[in-house]
Amino acid sequence: MEDESLNPLRRMSSRTRKVAPKMVAALTSSDNRTQAVLARLEALENDNAGTEVGDLIDDDDASLDDEDDDGYMHKKQSKSTKRKTRQAKALENARKAPRTFIELLHEANLESLPPHIPSYSRAAVGPPSSTSRRHFCTVCGFTATYTCVRCGMRFCCRRCQNIHNDTRCLKFVA
């Protein structure tokens, strides 16, 4: 709209204006898609991590019980101080918790090195020379010719499309 007011002589097709908000939506959704791709690549490095949280809680409970016992054994006063240390301990645990490699990498600040020094980030092989990419059907694994208009995943035929729509369309968002 601003453009029009600045330059009234320029002819604008009504269609472009109609399309623009859709394009904006498409752009953001493609951003979502790249994020989904990145998240998926990230997930390829995961272990069976979901259960670990439960384990930590278990450990905490066990240690808390011990502390409570200690508290009863000693004076009543000490119990309040124990409570504080419990919190402090949780904080300390959070600090001591192993950091991921990515965090350590950020911390090391490799970008500050002069460009002639080889480093972890410079050793990455870099983008492929040809940009062509083969697409495989997410349902059956064969060469996929179609893209889902909603989520961008690939499928190869009508049958796979139905399975895709029923079971996994937009599932990567959740």
Binding site: G126, P127, R134
Partner: peptide
């Protein structure tokens, strides 16, 4: 061909050449 996974990295053969 890591590109098939959506990774922006070259494959093993190209990696060796580089």
């Amino acid at each position: 061909q890591p590109a098939d996974l959506g990774m922006n990295q070259a494959g093993l053969a190209e990696c060796i050449v580089r």
